[in-house]
């Protein structure tokens, strides 16, 4: 059951996206996140969806896998969508229900707002997944972050330590998931019940899982520290990397492509609002 968690996992492959420099992918992801939040009209969303579909196709990651990663978050998406639909006021009212003290009012604007919000979250998940986490090995990812943040090391921030902690945390995700499964099976075999009762009793039932997990994590950390020391780890000082990051033409082109896309898709919108042209908002 826990093995189905794919969020933040890496799918090895050899696509164009897999081969890009992690630094470029991080920058592109940050740009995409900003754009997803900036998108105002349906045209913008349409273009973003188009781009996302293109990226998914290029990445070579099965659509099924992507849908599976969206599934755990579908509740949040639907909730945010419903909130927007119900609580956004507007002039073009579609439905107006009054029943005792409940006043239900759904407007076109609210409906559009809800759809936009749902799209926004979905695009965010799929874009960061496809561009970054699914196509970049965690090591490359932390490596990229370390390189991007390396200027901060000059002012005394522990960039290497942070990157190492992150990559170790990622390394132990599958191990701890496996262990949680094992502990749960052990507790179930002794009659523990995790799937019935109300919220409080379910949370209480998790305590016998979390405590052994916590204790074993400390033991693991201890052994890991020892093993790392025996392998001559002594912090970031004087450490080299087997994999060197080199920016290639493809990396630059990818970034230019993303930047151009954003420019084309959103500059007209910004122009419109700057020039005071309104009235299209509802249309788009």
């Amino acid at each position: 059951m826990l093995k189905d968690v794919t969020l933040g996992q890496f799918f090895p492959g050899n696509s164009l996206l897999h081969r890009l420099d992690p630094r470029i992918k991080i920058i592109a992801t940050v740009l995409l996140i900003i754009v997803v939040f900036l998108a105002q009209n349906m045209l913008g969303y349409g273009l973003l969806i188009l781009l996302t579909l293109l990226l998914v196709a290029v990445s070579g990651i099965p659509v099924k896998t992507i849908l599976k990663s969206v599934k755990p978050l579908i509740f949040i998406v639907l909730l945010t969508c419903a909130m927007n639909v119900l609580f956004t006021g507007g002039e073009n009212v579609l439905l107006d229900l009054r029943w005792s003290f409940i006043h239900l009012k759904i407007s076109v604007e609210g409906l559009l707002g809800g759809v936009k919000m749902a799209l926004r979250i979905l695009l965010l998940i799929v874009d960061t997944g496809v561009v970054l986490t699914y196509t970049t090995s965690p090591i490359d990812l932390t490596d990229g972050i370390e390189r991007l943040l390396s200027p901060l090391a000059k002012i005394g921030l522990p960039v290497h330590t942070f990157a190492m902690m992150m990559s170790l945390a990622l390394r132990f995700v599958p191990t701890l998931i496996e262990e949680t499964d094992k502990i749960m099976s052990a507790q179930k075999s002794r009659g523990a019940d995790f799937s019935s009762g109300n919220l409080v009793s379910r949370v209480k039932a998790l305590v016998p899982i979390l405590i052994p997990l916590l204790i074993s994590s400390f033991r693991r950390a201890d052994e890991l520290a020892l093993a790392m020391e025996c392998r001559c780890y002594h912090g970031g000082k004087g450490r080299t990397k087997m994999k060197q990051l080199h920016l290639r033409a493809a990396d630059i082109l990818f970034l230019i492509f993303i930047a151009l896309f954003i420019g084309v898709a959103f500059l007209p919108g910004i122009h419109c609002s700057l020039l005071g042209i309104t009235g299209f908002d509802f249309l788009f």
Partner: peptide, 14 residues
């Protein structure tokens, strides 16, 4: 070099 008992607790990379 040392090799320890639990293989999971001495591998650092993914």
């Amino acid at each position: 070099g040392m090799v320890f008992q639990n293989p999971d607790n001495q591998l650092v990379a993914t």
